[in-house]
Computed example of a mutant assay.
Amino acid sequence: MSAVNIVMLITLVGLLVWRLRPVKGVRNITTTELKNELGNKDKQYIDVRTPGEFKSKSIKTFKNIPLDQLSTKASSLSMEKEVVIICQSGMRSTKAAKMLKSLGFTKITNVKGGMSAWR
């Protein structure tokens, strides 16, 4: 393997690790922990999957705001209440958490494993 290939591989792995790292200041919970928190009126529950994914399987308490619409619809969310975010596997909800953090939200919770872990 050439030095260029090794550098490219290391860079690719580094970028992947960087993208998957937890967002600083965002709480991460399991779906088991989520079950204990559902119904809390002081929290906003957001599912960032596509409308089709949401329609096929969703949690009653969650509102669907697809990730690609979140930045424009974030103004409909209260910055005073905690935002609990879920997606299919945890990748899009991590992106959503980063986005909300950059928009000034401070109370953000990401559901690890997403709907894939929901039973």
Results as ranks from 00 to 15, higher is better:
Lys24Cys: 01
Val17His: 05
Gly114Gln: 04
Ser71Thr: 11
Trp18His: 11
Pro51Ile: 14
Gly104Pro: 10
Gly14Trp: 06
Lys95Tyr: 09
Ile85Pro: 02
Lys41Pro: 14
Lys101Phe: 01
Lys81Leu: 02
Ala117Thr: 03
Leu12Phe: 11
Lys95Met: 11
Gly114His: 06
Gly39Lys: 13
Glu33Tyr: 06
Ile59Lys: 08
Arg27His: 14
Asn36His: 14
Val111Tyr: 03
Ile108Val: 11
Leu100Lys: 00
Thr32Pro: 02
Thr11Glu: 05
Pro22Val: 07
Asn40Lys: 12
Ser78Met: 05
Gln69Arg: 15
Val17Tyr: 11
Met1His: 07
Lys35His: 13
Lys57Asn: 15
Asn5Val: 02
Lys35Ser: 15
Lys98Phe: 00
Arg92Pro: 06
Lys112Ile: 09
Leu77Glu: 08
Arg19Cys: 00
Gly14Ile: 07
Lys60Phe: 03
Thr94Ala: 10
Lys112Ser: 13
Ile6Val: 13
Glu33Ala: 12
Val26Gln: 02
Gln44Arg: 10
Gly114Cys: 05
Lys73Pro: 06
Trp118Pro: 02
Leu12Ile: 05
Leu38Ala: 09
Lys101Leu: 04
Leu34Arg: 09
Lys101Ala: 07
Leu15Lys: 09
Asn40Phe: 04
Lys43Thr: 03
Ser89Lys: 06
Lys63Pro: 01
Lys55Ala: 15
Ile59Val: 15
Ser58Arg: 15
Lys112Trp: 04
Lys63Met: 09
Arg27Gly: 00
Lys73Val: 04
Met91Phe: 08
Thr32Leu: 13
Ser71Arg: 13
Lys35Asn: 12
Thr11Cys: 10
Lys101Asp: 05
Lys57Met: 11
Val111Leu: 03
Leu12His: 01
Ile6Gln: 15
Leu12Cys: 08
Met91Gly: 06
Lys55Gln: 15
Val84Pro: 03
Ile46Gly: 04
Ala74Thr: 03
Met1Phe: 01
Thr61Pro: 04
Lys43Met: 12
Gly39Trp: 08
Trp118Leu: 02
Thr106Asn: 11
Asp47Ile: 00
Lys73Ala: 12
Leu9Ser: 07
Leu38Gln: 13
Trp18Ala: 14
